[in-house]
């Protein structure tokens, strides 16, 4: 196997290029709450107010929320969500922000956060609005 590394500094090359894959798009994702009504609509609105701790983008536009459901009888809100990567250090912080935001919704009695890893998050899950927000921040996805 030949190597791209060349010890001659006059012929220095950039280090190996890593091709970051786009990931797979899923028909039902990103979930944005479009068409939802009643308390579920209010929960989605609350989730839109929660931002990623590192970038000025709503977690909904980032594509972290996979599903929202509110049990009409008990008022239990269930949020299916993922994280951008497994080692995400903001896991607990995000969960806490989400919990506070959703608990404040009128009619919600309890919040259940279900962390899921499939389908795996990728930049394909970022919404158009999210792409715009990230571009303003200086990131192109």
């Amino acid at each position: 196997m030949s190597s791209e590394f060349d010890p001659d500094p006059t012929e220095a090359q950039y280090c190996a290029h890593t091709d970051y894959s786009e990931g797979t798009a899923h028909e039902e994702l990103p979930a944005t709450g479009e068409g939802s009504v009643g308390i579920e609509r209010d929960v989605w609105d609350a989730l839109y107010t929660v931002e990623d701790p590192e970038m000025p983008i709503s977690i909904v536009d980032l594509g972290l929320i996979y599903a929202v459901g509110v049990e009409p009888e008990t008022g239990e809100a269930r949020i299916d969500m993922t994280l951008t990567y497994t080692g995400c250090p903001a896991r607990n912080m995000l969960r806490d922000d989400i919990r506070s935001a959703v608990e404040a919704v009128e009619g919600v009695e309890d919040v259940l956060i279900n962390l899921v890893w499939s389908p795996a998050w990728s930049t394909a899950m970022v919404t158009e609005q999210g792409r715009e927000d990230l571009r303003d921040f200086g990131l192109s996805v």
């Binding site: 196997m1 590394f5 280090c15 190996a16 497994t86 890893w117 795996a120 998050w121």
Partner: peptide, 25 residues
């Protein structure tokens, strides 16, 4: 359910290790 996510991250680890393996030889 969680293996796909892990594999996607492992892909970069292999690339990193293989590239250094070549350079150090």
């Amino acid at each position: 359910d969680r293996i796909g996510k892990i594999m996607a991250e492992e892909k970069y680890h292999r690339e990193h290790a293989r590239s250094w393996l070549e350079r150090l030889c």
